[in-house]
Design a binder for these strands. Structure first.
Lengths: 196, 196, 196, 196
DNA sequence: GATGAATGAGGGTTCATTCAT
DNA sequence: GATGAATGAACCCTCATTCAT
């Protein structure tokens, strides 16, 4: 999945220079098209935006999920890495959880259609789904556990379920001015608090 | 054109017995197909499931939204009517709200893809969207108002937004054994409670 | 083809009264629909206009051509009968020919799509084509012959060909304000004149 | 994007050799199918005749009118260019007109359904209609004007109307052995002559 | 490696015609 | 006889994916 060394090129882990450039063009184009047309946008549109042929997309990203993952990898990683940091910075684990969830929401609501794609029944996005979960669920679990240990929240909800819920609350958020996903997510997280 | 005398048709409804039967076949088939393939399932599939020709679908339901509305009308209506009843039966408005939301959730989580269709950006489902909102939002508003007047919940969230949130939490609920929409919705509603 | 006597009814050559009435309703409706939508208008539209079921059309007019013939029979007959009359009234056979052609043109240009249907390659309109020709070609032939005998026109063009030409010149005439079929037909007939 | 160096493609035209070949296959197939089934023939039939997929047609000719125009462009252009040439070669403008009309007729009578499509009421063929008129009407106008100036014909008929008339006379000409469009057109043009 | 042409499955919609009621 | 519901072939068009160049 990462830059493996089977390439005959000299540079560590990189293909030809133009191939790297195309990869980046594609990521940028895909990000832009995803914003306007959703992650199910026609392949042709993405290729056109990038100024490359469609075959080039398939070479770099054999499945659509691969492309989506690549587009969002950085942001997913940043979100994952923010978890431990918040835990050590914030006064309480619950505060860290709140902020981390906010990061996740900010990420999702700017990605037209991404949340919908996180549904596990979308066969062609399995690997995308898996990537998200692999990367983020452990972080969320740890935040939940820490808050539960402190008695700030009721135990029993696992990170996967919370993330699915938050993800769902973000579905369609960007296209509807009367819908405030952040507020609803905040309600959800508030609902977790241990009623004294 | 009306029920002319030689007809043996006593019921007030539509014209022919077989037409009525087909209409029901279609509603049942559509309900079944919607569960497995979502409300965007191919017309051909629904027709096949019902054992009728495609033209029959178009005769009874000129647009897809018409079909979807028809499939869910009874349940939407039942849900709408339950609101006032619960308000008078339950000890407090908040309890009524909780139970009404549960009814709504029970309805949605068995409808694959329905929640997704409630997104307002889906042009071909406008009338469906409108139907849902016209029918249910006022009921939800009234429950919220009653609870707010009693001081049970914080004011400020309107019924539309709550329903959108609940709807979203139900997206994909049926296909994922590890996802308990009811629990997440319960958390959301708990989050509404006025913190003492 | 005419009202044969196999009916068990008493009236000479007629079916049930309501059947006769329906037949007339259909002819009127078809005439009206043909004007606006052409002779290839959907059967349903004609039935709807007539306020009868589609099956009724098929009972009375098994093929579309049968209906078209029936709709225009009176006018075709009137046109056919006008030939001999004009021949005896007009000062010269050529004048009679001119006027008769005008009648034919007046008939055609008010019938959206009729002229196009006279094309012999339109398989489903064979009988219509045949009817027109059977009825009108002999009349036209006689006018042509009379004018040729008088030396007013050059011989050699038969009635069928002239009528096809005139029919074609009327194609699409009604929908195009910049196209004057009568003038073009007049040129064609003028072209027949024997150059002194 | 332009003819990059590694391409062996010398011709100035379009990109790939096979694409050009397919384009030609399509033009040939369309021409053939148009002859037998008219210019409204199903897209699938044309694709099948050409031995290509349907998508290939849509790639090369996004609308049906584009295809029809392409099929006939060469002949339309040749016809347009012949006008001035005839005017300078022929002894009189009227003779040039006669011959030019003959060229136009020769073109049309081999195109089943083309003449019908020239009807201005056919919405999806607007661009085709426009192309024909833009290209040919000025040529015809000029021939008519020249003949009128010489006093060979009566003035007052414009090129558009004459061409519509000639076009109509060619409708269905190819499929009917008993119908001689050339002769009828000749009569029409004869009818234009100034009666001395 | 890159290109984008070609393929063809897939899904929507219309309407002539049949036939149960 | 009349009705109009049902059928399903026939068209249209899109787009993911492959593969010749």
């Amino acid at each position: 999945m990462n830059d493996s060394g089977h390439s005959t090129n000299s540079a560590a882990g990189s293909k030809r220079k133009d191939a790297r450039r195309n990869q980046q063009l594609l990521l940028d184009a895909a990000a832009a098209v995803f914003v306007t047309s959703g992650v199910e946008a026609p392949v042709r549109d993405i290729a056109a935006k990038a100024g490359v042929g469609m075959g080039t997309i398939y070479r770099h990203f054999p499945t659509r999920a691969d492309l989506v993952i690549a587009v969002y990898r950085h942001q997913v990683d940043a979100c994952a890495e923010a978890g431990p940091a918040l835990l050590s910075e914030c006064p309480t684990p619950y505060a860290a959880l709140e902020q981390w969830i906010n990061l996740f929401v900010d990420f999702l609501i700017t990605k037209h259609g991404l949340a919908a794609v996180l549904q596990p029944d979308n066969s062609s996005f399995e690997s995308l789904h898996a990537y998200f979960l692999d990367r983020l669920v452990p972080v969320c679990d740890r935040l939940l556990d820490a808050a539960a240990e402190r008695g700030e929240i009721r135990p029993g909800l696992d990170g996967l379920e919370l993330m699915r819920g938050v993800g769902n609350l973000c579905v369609g958020a960007e296209s509807d001015p009367g819908y405030d996903a952040r507020r609803l997510v905040a309600l959800l997280v508030t609902g977790l608090r241990r009623t004294r």
